[in-house]
C-alpha cells in the first residue's frame, strides 16, 4: 500500500517471454483463429463466425462434460484434502521413521499417469484383477466396464490413491514449520487436541493447503490419461471428462473448429479459477 511498484524489472523476463510466445502464445493464437473457421483439410479454411461457439453453448455435450468434470474435481478435493491433512497429522515428526514414511509417501507421485491407469485397469478387472475378482468373490457385483457408478468409484479411488500423498506431503511441510513454542503454550493453556488443530495447525497450514487445493484442482480439472486408460470415457459417456471429450472432438473426429472453440472456453474456465486461487493465495500471504 505504501510503496510505488517499479515495473522496469519486467524487462528482464523478456527472454522467457520470447520462449513462451513460441511454445504457448502463438499456438494459442492459432487455436483462436481455428475457432472461427471450418476446414476440410489441406490448410484451407472457411469463415464461420461465432457458429461453433453458438453450437457448443446450445448443445448438451459440453455442458455435460463440464458437469462431470466439476463433480469429479469436487469429489476428489473433498476426499484428498481432509485425508491428506489427516495423514500428515499422523506422520512421525522426527527420527528414522520420518524419513521412511516420507519416501513411502512420495512413491505414488513418481509413477507416471499411464502406468497408474494401467495398474488400476488390471486391478479392477473381474477376471484377472485382484480387486475386481475379490469383490465379486465376496458377492459384491462390481464391474467398472458396465456400471457407471463403479466406473466413477474406480476413477475417484485411483486419483485418491495417486495424489493424496501430495496433499499429505504439503500439509506435513506446513506442520513442520510450526515452532514448538506454539504447542508448549497450548499445553500450558490445556487446549484440547481439536483446539490445537483448529487454532494453531490449520491456520499455519493454510498457505500450503491453498497450494495443494490449487494443484489438485488444476490437475484433476485437466485429467486425461488415467480415466482414458481405465475406462476410455465409458461406460457410455459416464466418465468422459472435458479433456477426453476435447481429444475425441479434435483428434477422433478431426473437427478442428468446434474443438478450438471448446478448448478456448475450457481455457477461460481454467484461467478464471486459477486467478481466483492465485488471488486468494497472495492475499493470504499479505495478511501474514
Amino acid at each position: 500500500m505504501e510503496k510505488t511498484v517499479n515495473h522496469k524489472a519486467w524487462f528482464l523476463v523478456l527472454p522467457v517471454l520470447v520462449l513462451v510466445a513460441f511454445s504457448a502464445v502463438i499456438p494459442l493464437m492459432t487455436v483462436v483463429n481455428y475457432a472461427f473457421q471450418d476446414t476440410f483439410g489441406n490448410n484451407v479454411f472457411f469463415w464461420n463466425g461465432l457458429g461453433w461457439f453458438e453450437d457448443l453453448l446450445a448443445s448438451d455435450r459440453m455442458w455435460n462434460a463440464l458437469g462431470r468434470q466439476l463433480a469429479f474435481s469436487g469429489i476428489i478435493l473433498a476426499i484428498e484434502i481432509p485425508l491428506g491433512v489427516f495423514v500428515a497429522l499422523n506422520m512421525p515428526k522426527r527420527g528414522v521413521w520420518a524419513s521412511v514414511v516420507l519416501v513411502l509417501m512420495s512413491l505414488p507421485l513418481l509413477i507416471p499417469w499411464n502406468v497408474v491407469g494401467t495398474i488400476w485397469q488390471i486391478f479392477g478387472r473381474v477376471d484377472i484383477g485382484l480387486l475386481g475378482y475379490t469383490l465379486n468373490s465376496m458377492g459384491i457385483s462390481y464391474n467398472y466396464t458396465q456400471n457407471p457408478v463403479h466406473a466413477w468409484a474406480t476413477v475417484v479411488v485411483m486419483d485418491v490413491w495417486h495424489w493424496t500423498s501430495l496433499v499429505a506431503l504439503l500439509a506435513y511441510a506446513g506442520l513442520q514449520s510450526i515452532p514448538d513454542a506454539y504447542y508448549q503454550a497450548a499445553r500450558i493453556d490445556q487446549a484440547s487436541r481439536w483446539k490445537v488443530f483448529r487454532y494453531i495447525e490449520l491456520p499455519k497450514m493454510m498457505g500450503v493447503l491453498m497450494i495443494a487445493i490449487l494443484l489438485r484442482f488444476m490437475d484433476s480439472f485437466m485429467i486425461y490419461t488415467e480415466p482414458f486408460v481405465v475406462t476410455g470415457g465409458g461406460p457410455g459417456n459416464a466418465t468422459t471428462f472435458l479433456s477426453i471429450d476435447l481429444v475425441k472432438m479434435a483428434l477422433g473426429q478431426f473437427d478442428l473448429g468446434p474443438a478450438a472453440a471448446f478448448s478456448l472456453m475450457y481455457f477461460l474456465v481454467i484461467l478464471l479459477i486459477s486467478w481466483v486461487f492465485y488471488t486468494v493465495m497472495t492475499n493470504l500471504d499479505k495478511r501474514g
Binding site: T30, N33, F36, F45
Partner: peptide
C-alpha cells in the same frame, strides 16, 4: 504465417489486445 489460418477479425482482435498491453506497460 499461412499455417496460423489468420482472418481479419481475429487479427484485429489480437492487435487490440497487443495495443492494450503495450499501452498499460
Amino acid at each position: 504465417m499461412a499455417w496460423m489460418a489468420w482472418t481479419t477479425p481475429t487479427a484485429i482482435f489480437f492487435v487490440i489486445i497487443a495495443l492494450l498491453l503495450v499501452t498499460f506497460s
